[in-house]
């Protein structure tokens, strides 16, 4: 009887096991041989419905349902019209990434005006380098391009920032980004920030261990706009919410993304009420 109890306990311990710890590290020696299809700032407004990022901060099942919805979002060539190339710098201590526009062949007429605009944009930027950045790989994936526009540094950080040290499922960290930037005429009365990237799962696949990361960053401000005294139009309200959510699948042993899909959303109120956008950023490893 006692032996059976020990056997059950042992089985439970083996089944549960100690939490597996992994280190997410870029492997620069393989990166420069890889190619990714990439989407950068593709307008997908309305495709995913409203993003309730405040609710997701406390309602895990709603958050996971939203991640699942995002996983179902088709990623046609029209979205993935960039290629991401990498080049090792400084003996592999840093890496340069370039997102280059590639031509896309369309066999059908555009469905609507939005698609027509997108096709024009693809044509205009074919072979152009849409983004270039250098990342330090020796420490914490820091962006070395201090001179870049902050919105472009955010994109680089979204793509490449990985946490230092060993992590286990459930561990989380912050993404060093800042989305909202307000001019001096906007007075903030209330604000909130949530910034969490979580190691959601470690999957064993034929390609090796895949670390699934879930992203949820939300910044929100509410206040008013102070105008020039002479115009005397009072203090109209102003509100802005920016959020980044999505997932990434990192090949742990190989040291690079399998894919990463993020949505950056903008929602304005008051003086910014015309602002409602959802932009797709994605990397998909080309086999």
């Amino acid at each position: 009887m006692k032996l059976a109890a020990y056997a059950v306990l042992l089985t439970m311990m083996v089944a549960t096991g100690p939490a597996q710890a992994v280190e997410l590290v870029w492997h620069p020696e393989v990166l420069d041989k890889l190619e990714y299809a990439a989407a950068a700032e593709i307008d997908v407004s309305g495709l995913l419905g409203e993003l309730n990022t405040e609710e997701w901060q406390t309602n895990q099942s709603a958050y996971l349902a939203a991640i699942d919805r995002l996983k179902q979002l088709p990623l046609p060539d029209m979205y993935l019209h960039h290629r991401a190339h990498f080049k090792a710098l400084d003996n592999g201590k840093a890496i340069r990434v370039q997102l280059v526009g590639v031509p896309v062949t369309f066999n059908e007429e555009p469905k609507d005006e939005h698609e027509m605009d997108m096709r024009d944009r693809i044509d205009a930027f074919t072979n152009a380098i849409m983004l270039q950045g250098d990342m330090d790989l020796s420490g914490n994936s820091a962006d070395l391009t201090f001179y870049r526009l902050s919105s472009e540094r955010n994109i680089m950080t979204q793509f490449f920032y990985l946490p230092n040290g060993e992590i286990s499922v459930g561990d989380h960290w912050q993404l060093p980004v800042q989305y909202i930037e307000l001019g001096p005429g906007i007075f903030v009365q209330s604000s909130s920030r949530h910034n969490q990237v979580t190691l959601a799962e470690l999957k064993q696949t034929p390609a090796g261990t895949v670390a699934v990361l879930h992203y949820l960053v939300s910044e929100q401000v509410d206040g008013y706009l102070e105008r020039v005294a002479n115009t005397d139009k009072g203090r109209p309200p102003f509100g802005l919410k920016m959020a980044c959510f999505g997932y990434g699948e990192f090949l742990v042993e190989k040291g690079h993304w399998l894919r990463q899909v993020l949505i950056l959303s903008y929602d304005g109120k008051g003086q910014a009420s015309g602002l409602h956008k959802q932009h797709l950023f994605a990397l998909q490893l080309k086999q």
Binding site: E181, L182, P184, G185, I186, F187, S191, A229
Partner: peptide
């Protein structure tokens, strides 16, 4: 014509560390 136009608007601590996280660069 632009009297009252706000040029800078923030809060700092005693070492001048900017407390407005959303300020433009």
């Amino acid at each position: 014509a632009t009297i009252g136009l706000v040029q800078l608007n923030t809060i700092i601590d005693q070492y001048g560390v900017n407390q407005n996280h959303f300020i433009k660069p």
